[in-house]
Design a protein around this nucleic acid. Structure first.
Lengths: 337, 337
DNA sequence: AGGGTGCCGGTAAACGTTTCCTGATCATCG
DNA sequence: CGATGATCAGGAAACGTTTACCGGCACCCT
């Protein structure tokens, strides 16, 4: 009952060889005799031996693990990243570990310390804060880091993100070309670069096109559904905008809720091609972020950086794409329940 | 430049003590002199020492890792589980690793082998197949396993799942009480117990209540959106049902798409309280699975089982809850775009 | 036939911890 | 004052691998 785990020595004994030979066979060395190799393989089968990853990693000087670190599990990138990075990891015999930083810099730092201690071979990180996240511990230890979605100021690492400024510009162009002239936008917290860039690009484009936009055109939410609804209701009360761009997916849902069932609402332009946007009536036009492509690119980049650590860091920006649906068509007939 | 990693020996030298003492201080042993302890702590700070998790785990005979294994990343439980299990893991100084089995028994088996080699302290598993998943390798190695969402035949492990039979019954009762009399249901693949149980409970309840249900009332999809749409269109062509219960969330969306904009459609009863169900018109009644509660219960159970491995396995069933919306109200007025 | 040259398998060290055991120091007690 | 015990730090073994190094053997060349 007190059966020890079967180790490489047990296999060696069973096959009548030394542990070195067993190790060689397991790791596919060619320098071992056919006959011995056969005996070892048989012994492995018989004993049901599974090499211990801990001993192996210790000896090899590094766990074959890739870490995925993101602020929260609601982050749309998170699941995609895991899924993509796992595909890459499998081909390189790596495993995947995850951690959430819960938008907390302290937790993030602690998390980095952990990763350091575990000798991970690379980190895919959605940083908590562009300005205050400190990558130094990881960088100094020579651990490759690829940033996803958000950059970190002054960090010499790879970055894969979407071109948010451009996303905002595209939204503005689209609405302007459809004849709308009184824009409004719901942004997030000012320190969050992604939503802020979208809002900035959006407003700048209108101004470039000679449309006057006052400060009342810029509303703010906290990224959650409810805040989108509140902001939109306020906008409706003011009642001057003829179109509304919402800079993240959850607030978009809130905005739609506020608009639903009302007559004469502004055209809604949402963010992210979530399922509901095409199921609702009217269907909602969106700026579709290339989430999958971004995740894939990030995973690839990390894989490559792990294989070849001394290359120059690069920044990859992916373009968003507009999906036009009914909510922004020039004169959708109104319907109501 | 070729700076070695700082090890416990470096700290020991810096503090003028032995590695044993450093280890004791780090692990909070009380048997160390105040003064020495202080010196060691200072040395740790100075050298920026982070204990190596590999050496530690090797010596301790087990990595402090919890694995989360699920068929695919679209599984609604997956993210929730990760998030919940991480909370538990943090309090027990464990880390979390993930793996997808991609609905592939071979991959699942390989995955188990890996986990075995990595000496994980516990596994949270959404099994690929109730009948053919083989837990023996993990069980034999004494690794605690908690099954989530789906049971595995004949496995003596903890299970946390929702009572799917009951979910189907609730749906049937609800529709029957609203006056509907010609039910239909979209099930999944026959071997998938969750959707099958829902369908079974649903149909059984109608029969118990004296409603004749023929085999044509049972449609099947492959769990994806598109298959829900196809099945629903077929149902509409036959045109006899006055209400439709869909047993998973993605097929529900497909069903809604097929129904949208048509007059005189059957009442739709969907599964999972996804965002879109309350945004669309008419809003869709759902059987809400307690995903968060299930995940949390599973994580707790695993934490407990790791702490105390020799307890009797238990099965926890959580009840689903009905959320009534417009789609199943007796005579919703029809609207159309 | 003897020595050189490869080939291949084994011995043992090393990876970085933790922890058992021993030994030293000191206090207390007989 | 000596012996016993308690306390605490260090030496060294152990966890399970991989791999550098070495030695033995067979073969070939001179």
């Amino acid at each position: 009952m007190a059966s020890r785990r079967t180790t490489i020595l047990d296999v060696a004994r069973a096959a009548g060889v030394s542990s070195a030979t067993v190790s060689r066979v397991i790791n596919g060395a060619t320098t071992v005799d056919k006959e011995l190799s056969r005996r070892v393989q048989a012994a492995v089968q018989d004993t049901g031996y599974v090499p211990d990853a801990l001993g192996r990693s210790l000896r090899r000087g590094g766990a074959s693990q890739i870490a995925v670190v993101a602020p929260d599990s609601e982050n749309p990138y998170f699941m995609q990243i895991i899924s993509e990075v796992e595909r890459i990891a499998r081909t390189q015999n790596h495993t995947v570990t995850v951690a959430h930083t819960e938008d907390d810099l302290g937790l993030e730092r602690e998390c980095f310390r952990q990763l350091l201690g575990r000798r991970v071979s690379g980190v895919l990180l959605v940083p908590v804060d562009s300005a205050r996240t400190d990558l130094a511990p990881l960088i100094d230890a020579g651990i490759p880091v690829v940033l996803v979605d958000r950059a970190v100021d002054g960090a010499a690492t790879d970055v894969v993100a979407t071109d948010n400024l451009d996303a905002g510009r595209q939204a503005a162009r689209h609405l302007h070309e459809r004849g709308f002239r009184a824009p409004a936008v719901i942004a997030g917290p000012p320190t969050l670069r992604t939503t802020e860039d979208r809002a900035t690009g959006f407003l700048a484009t209108w101004r470039e096109r000679g449309v006057e936009v006052g400060p009342e055109a810029l509303l703010r939410g906290d990224l959650h559904v409810e805040s989108g609804r509140v902001a939109t209701e306020q906008l409706l009360a003011d009642g001057i905008a003829d179109c509304l761009y919402v800079t993240n997916n959850r607030m978009s849902a809130g905005a739609f809720e506020a608009l639903r069932g009302r007559a004469q609402v502004p055209a809604l332009f949402a963010t992210d091609d979530d399922l509901w946007t095409r199921l609702v009536t009217p269907s909602v036009s969106v700026v579709h972020q290339p989430v999958r492509a971004t995740s894939r690119a990030a995973a690839r980049m990390l894989g490559q950086r792990i294989a070849d650590p001394d290359e120059e860091p690069s920044t990859t920006l992916l373009r968003s794409k507009i999906i036009e649906r009914d909510s922004t068509r020039p004169r959708g007939r109104e319907e109501d329940g």
